[in-house]
Design a protein around this nucleic acid. Structure first.
Lengths: 347, 347
DNA sequence: CTGAAAGCGCTTACAG
DNA sequence: CTGAAAGCGCTTACAG
């Protein structure tokens, strides 16, 4: 039963003061006991806990943020919500962050650098305790915002290439080599006898480009690289676009014997288009995708693809961030979580 | 150029004070001018704006929230992120809320009432200015939290039935009649000559159940209701489950001539299973889904389904909430945005 | 239309 | 290990 409002601005909520009074200690002791900060006499901690529970005390995040200049928000920036990939990433990050007491602030950039910068600006207003951001490549303004804010930050999904033009120092990341994954899938197609392997990409974000480079390097190593077999379309990835690209490629280059689509939705659309057109997969042409999205194992034929560890990346990234927010330095700044080529009937 | 830190707790940030000094007015006038609250002399407003821009002033949301007991957060609760439906809802809501200066706090309930309550509790700690919640049915604790919090709230996706056991007064909602949509789709199947129409449902959340009731009522009206044609599975909706359900139904009830799946992913899985098994759709059996999710128009045959206006619901719900947060009362507490039966080749 | 004072509910920084 | 004081950066409530 909260005490009746006494003065003109009383909010009626149970405050640290109330708990302190009930426990017979000073407010600052309650603050320390509840946060487990510094040493407090265990007996007092006990008394404070009881009083706090009895009164139903709930700390006020705004007051906390104002006094400490640090909120319990973690900002996260992802390109899209319409690709399962990022939803899995987000879900895993939230599952790790929430039990630790952090609220997630989501920003959806739609692959637009300007929007990313704007969203980051708005998120930083809230003085988040940490930041999770998709990708390693951001424009100068965004990078400056991150470093000037001093907010601990972990980059997700990608890894710096060995040859990377020096990243800012203490860039933390969790991901896998997109290029190596693209090369591995291409080598799988080569090893199963394919010789004229096309690459079909949409969106053309930095990670798609890395997969393209992986495809190139694998074909160059096999002396089979043909630049006219690159189909790059900046439009958003979708099943419909996959079907369109498939028809284009088969129509213009009937001798192609395999197509590597940069994302599973494109490849799924291609498989459906092949059914529609009566083109046999994998006999006439092999089809492969990327990410192992829902439904790929259900397709006819089931889709060969690369399984990417996005849930693990979300979890490991959040865990690393949790450490950074506590002031710890991770053993290694970048964690490689690898990938797996999944061979199914379509190749 | 911010002034150097003067005292032991200075944060170096530009404050209302600084702007007031620069503009030669009192802090409270700056506060009012910047928020456009109450009448302020236009000349002063101009001076304040200039000083604010010159100094790069950014208001501190924490200080604001503490002083006003109201944050610029809007909490939103959705069941899942893995169903495009809710992602579209969320995206539309954010697009409406962000330009109005609100940050979205997302809670994913996984269709679990306990989690929903817990998430709402955490969100309310932040004293959100408003709340968007999926569905009309929540447990008593959740309802109590909402009404006691006094936070304006709009319910999304569903509408109270005419027969609804009285909802709490001033329940605001934006959606469409799930039951009527289920009935409409069923009537479409009936009108194209189908007589043994099965219903296959997964997840079994309240909205799926409403669609089931719609299916029932349409068949009862046609004197064709057969309770043994209900296939209800509480597992999560997925393409794989759709395939399994399809095989079960066809295996056990070969005379079924149409199946209404409660969600498109199930129906897509069924179409793929039919291809695999060599069962012709729609000749032997018609297949219909719900929601018109990505890919449904690409299937072979393309999927008959119900297009649901989730993006419009997100937008209209957010707009209604914006009004409520300003203290306005909407013309009508509930908005019906309807639905559309999309007839494609699978039926 | 404008302002001086007080207060929102915490934590920091300093003492002891 | 504990506490009194001051302060975080705003807005409310009251005056004028």
């Amino acid at each position: 039963m909260p005490a009746p409002a006494k003065n003109k601005r009383s909010t009626g909520r149970v405050t640290l003061q109330d708990v302190a009074q009930a426990a017979g200690v000073s407010p600052i002791t309650v603050s320390r006991a509840l946060r487990g900060e510094r040493a407090v006499d265990p007996q007092l901690v006990e008394r404070v806990m009881q009083a706090s529970n009895r009164l139903g005390y709930v700390p006020d995040p705004a007051a906390r943020a104002l006094a400490s200049q640090r909120s319990n928000h973690v900002a996260i920036l992802i390109p899209l919500l319409s690709n399962t990939l990022f939803v899995d990433l987000l879900d895993a990050a939230q599952k790790t962050l929430r039990p630790a007491g952090f609220q997630t602030l989501i920003g959806v950039t739609h692959y637009d650098e300007g929007q990313e910068e704007q969203l980051l600006r708005e998120q930083l207003m809230h003085r988040p305790a940490g930041l999770l951001i998709t990708g390693l490549n951001h424009n100068a303004a965004t990078q400056a915002l991150i470093s000037r804010s001093q907010v601990p930050c972990v980059h997700l999904m990608d890894l710096p290439a060995a040859s990377e033009p020096s990243l800012p120092p203490s860039t933390y990341c969790v991901g896998f080599s997109q290029k190596e994954a693209g090369a591995s899938l291409t080598r799988h197609l080569l090893s199963s006898g394919r010789r004229r392997i096309a690459f079909a990409g949409a969106q053309l974000d930095p990670r798609v480009m890395q997969r393209l480079y992986g495809w190139r390097s694998a074909l160059q190593a096999a002396q089979l690289y043909d630049p006219t077999l690159e189909w790059l379309n900046p439009a958003s990835s979708s099943l419909a676009l996959g079907g369109t690209l498939f028809e284009q490629i088969i129509g213009q280059r009937p001798a192609v014997d395999a197509i590597f689509f940069c994302n599973d939705d494109l490849a799924q659309g291609a498989l459906l288009a092949a059914l529609r057109l009566g083109i046999s997969v994998p006999q006439q042409v092999a089809i492969a995708g990327f990410n192992d999205l829902p439904g790929s194992d259900q397709m006819l034929p089931a889709l060969t693809t690369v399984r990417t560890p996005r849930a693990q990346i979300g979890e490991a990234g959040a865990t690393m961030l949790l450490g950074l927010m506590r002031g710890q330095t991770p053993d290694q700044p970048c964690i490689d979580l690898g990938f797996e080529v999944i061979t199914r009937r379509s190749s």
